[in-house]
Amino acid sequence: MSSIGAHAGQPPRQRSVAKGILFVYMGLVIAFIFMPIAAMVAFSFNDSGIPSLPWEGFTFRWYEEFANDAALVEGLQNSILLASMVSVISTSIALVTVYFLRRTRWRQKELLTAWVTAPALIPLLMAGLAIFTFFDLVGWTGSRIALACGLSTIGIPFGMAVIRSQLTGVDPAPEEAAINLGASHWTVLTRIVVPQCWSGIAGALLLTFVVGWDEFAISWFVTQFETTLPVQTYEQLGSAFSPKINAVGTIVFFTSLCLTVGAYLVALRPALRRAGR
């Protein structure tokens, strides 16, 4: 990191003014990014029929209404179920794929990584359309499992990234030693690799859960009957404009937040620390 202090040819006062402007700008950008979320959270507690100023008082009423709205609650349950399925599927496939990358001596092995990651880069609109028409043709629509399979195509690369980062500091020699002593690949995976990356697996489970939890676009296309929370919300947005949506939004936001921070603390930060050592 270059020495910030040594500025040539500028009077000190000009420097700190320029710096001040920069910091103010940073603050503005952060505000820009966070403002809507802050507004949503704030208004979810606002005792007013309109999700806006003026502030009419603190209340939990919108959360109550949310709890009483059967459609929304069902959407919540469906979301949780769906996200759990996506989490399990994505993490399992991610794990075995990471194992392959560790064992293989194929020089183009990162091609596999590219293949696995590509689906996550497609615009969701296209992905949703494609997956829906596929399921429609196969006759598998309206099924939660089908949606989970579709969403896992996005979850797998995330899971892989987390587990891989956790395993970068781990010496592969003991795995080879295990094979040398007679272990099968499955044994090496379950008895040697997994015990050394528990937190990575946990982090992957959390992160891929968030992927399924947040996902809207593909869900909207695929689900006909058992809609998830985001989809349900979208439907409701079109009709009555009720502040309880704020409550929903806040809940969704904080859930994602906690899970992501959880994944970071459990898996990514220890991996980064170890890499820095």
Binding site: I33, I37, M40, F216, I245, G249, F253
Partner: peptide, 18 residues
């Protein structure tokens, strides 16, 4: 600034509506 990336895209757009 990275945190919002992992929260529901839909919800954030809705928040903007507000």
């Amino acid at each position: 600034i990275a945190l919002p990336l992992f929260t529901s895209y839909l919800m954030r757009m809705y928040a903007w509506q507000t």
